[in-house]
Amino acid sequence: MSVDEYRSAFVRWDSQASVRTKPLREATEARDFYYPPELVTGHEVLRSSLGPEQVRRLLTLHLYAYLDFTVQLESLVVLPVTTLLGTGRSGLELPIAMRRDAMAITTDEAWHGQFTFDLIERIADQTGVPPCLPETYEFQRVRGRLRESIEPTLRPAFDLLITYVSETLISTKLLMLPRDERLPTYVREVVADHGQDERRHHAYFRALLPHFWRSLGMRDRAVLGALIPEMIVAFLGQDEAMERHCLTEAGMRPDRAAETVRGFREVFAAGRLLQDSRACVRYLVELGAVNQDMIEERLAA
């Protein structure tokens, strides 16, 4: 497909989008698990060192953090960019169909934020575990640092690129939660609704990438391309501050929580970064935007 051809993934948006067809999910059965233990760094060690109630609380806190991460990402990163794309203020010359689909994504992402916020409240009511959320997440800290490191004129392009990265990563969490029958049905359904929409968003940003990349000069491509591995790690890498927060809120002393998380650095499954970012990186490599070996080397470090 040439850069000027566009095959919309949103032809059936009105009959398929969760905002058009799916209700707010009502809380159903309570379960012992609200989040897969396997997604918690060092889960085997933690399950042997914490009591059953602390483990249950820890898993619920990790689910809150995952859901709140989604709200923060959609609201602070994705929505501003898709609004600019849809209203023709992104600096890119896009076909009207791509602008229309960007507006559909804007609607989707606002809905994702809303139903995720609602889900947190329902889980809190059902479990009795207060949604004590981290003040910020690693992706926000890294995004702020990287954005400040480049000249102001390049920051709008940075915003679009990091949105592309976030929308084309296929996270293990988004795939695993809907399939895990240990979790309450309504939790699985909400995450599945989100995932179905995200497949359309993924297709959109894959199609957008050539339009975006060809709009950049060689120097700007070099500056932004060098930041891509850190962008990927920001979304998929270990968030030690979040992990300390969850352990502390689950009842572990702050000093022990900090020591425990530090000890998990070598346990973190770095291979997951390569797996979850495979599609995102492949599209960039096909375009000549990055070197495959460089990306793999930096993600595996």
Rank of each mutant, 00 (worst) to 15 (best):
A65I: 00
Y66A: 14
Y66W: 05
L67P: 11
L67E: 12
L67V: 10
D68E: 15
D68M: 11
D68Q: 14
F69G: 07
T70D: 14
V71T: 15
V71H: 15
V71Q: 15
V71F: 13
Q72M: 14
Q72E: 15
Q72A: 15
L73M: 14
L73R: 13
L73A: 15
E74V: 08
E74S: 08
S75L: 08
S75M: 06
S75A: 12
S75Y: 04
L76W: 09
V77M: 09
V77Q: 09
V77C: 07
V77W: 01
V78N: 09
L79M: 13
L79Q: 09
L79G: 01
P80S: 00
P80M: 05
V81S: 04
V81Y: 00
V81M: 01
T82V: 14
T83D: 07
T83I: 06
L84Q: 14
L85F: 00
L85V: 02
G86C: 05
G86Y: 02
T87E: 07
T87Q: 09
G88A: 10
G88Y: 02
G88F: 02
R89E: 07
R89A: 11
R89H: 12
R89V: 00
R89M: 05
S90E: 05
S90K: 08
S90Q: 09
L92W: 08
L92S: 07
E93D: 15
L94N: 13
P95W: 04
I96W: 13
I96E: 12
I96N: 08
A97L: 10
A97F: 03
A97S: 13
A97Q: 12
M98C: 03
M98Y: 03
M98R: 06
M98T: 06
R99P: 02
R100P: 05
R100F: 04
D101L: 04
A102I: 01
A102P: 02
